[in-house]
């Protein structure tokens, strides 16, 4: 059973896949705790298993071994729908490739998860969120007409609009130049400080690494340091 003050807890978690050459371990025997309001940065080389670990922590994927607790609930044996219900309204995401809905405006992108969650006043909430990321003048612009930095701002606005307890970010600055990346990182941490949201961030960018409360290093699917909060 996870402790009450833990937002995420992993207990000897493993993830493997079957290949023609036998079982391949992607993540192996990882135990890790993340407290509420903590900012944890996961770092590692390409192919080290950091994105898989993020997916397991967020309940996007099911662990092959061990237990994952999110908001105190054990995700083991839970269906995708049940895991989805645990995330609903409590989790935000920011991705490297933005994952915005093309052909829709900035505000429509932010509103979409709110509306689908049945949130009242989705429009106002989305507008406020876009204001927070400095895009109040671009609310009705189609996302494909925005720059990379602006698109990532929309994605951050979308993530924070649901008022998440935890925000998962996968290489949020990976597709941006250094200056824009810095602005995005500032924005994300600023919003996190304002809202007290827990932050789990996967990156290999030095600057972002420095800004986390704790760094976790992963190599070949194994945790090298930073397991304990």
């Amino acid at each position: 059973m996870a402790e009450d003050n833990l937002c995420i807890a992993l207990n000897q978690v493993g993830k493997f896949v079957d290949t023609p050459d036998g079982k391949l371990d992607i993540v192996n025997n990882i135990s890790l705790d993340v407290k509420y309001q903590e900012a944890v940065v996961i770092k590692g080389a390409s192919g080290s298993g950091k994105t898989t670990l993020l997916g397991l922590m967020a309940g996007l994927d099911q662990a092959s071994a061990g237990e994952v607790f999110l908001f105190g609930e054990n995700l083991a044996g839970k269906s995708e729908e049940q895991r989805s219900a645990i995330r609903s309204g409590r989790v935000g995401f920011v991705f490297q490739s933005f994952h915005l809905v093309q052909g829709a405006t900035a505000i429509q992108n932010v509103m979409l998860p709110l509306e689908l969650s049945g949130v009242d006043g989705a429009h106002d909430q989305a507008q406020q969120s876009l204001h927070q990321v400095g895009l109040e003048s671009k609310t009705d612009t189609l996302v494909e007409h925005l720059s990379g930095g602006e698109q990532q701002r929309v994605a951050i606005a979308r993530a924070f609009a649901v008022k998440p307890r935890v925000l998962f970010a996968d290489e949020p600055t990976g597709n941006l130049d250094a200056t824009t990346g810095r602005q995005i990182a500032d924005l994300m941490f600023h919003l996190r400080d304002q809202s007290g949201t827990t932050l789990v961030l996967v990156t290999h960018e030095g600057e972002l690494l420095e800004r986390g409360d704790r760094q976790i290093l992963i190599e070949s699917g194994r945790l090298l340091n930073g397991a304990a909060a």
Binding site: A58, S84, R87, G89, L116
Partner: peptide, 10 residues
């Protein structure tokens, strides 16, 4: 996939 990650049910 994005919406399901946000916890929107099927």
């Amino acid at each position: 996939a994005m919406l399901r990650a946000f916890g929107i049910s099927q």
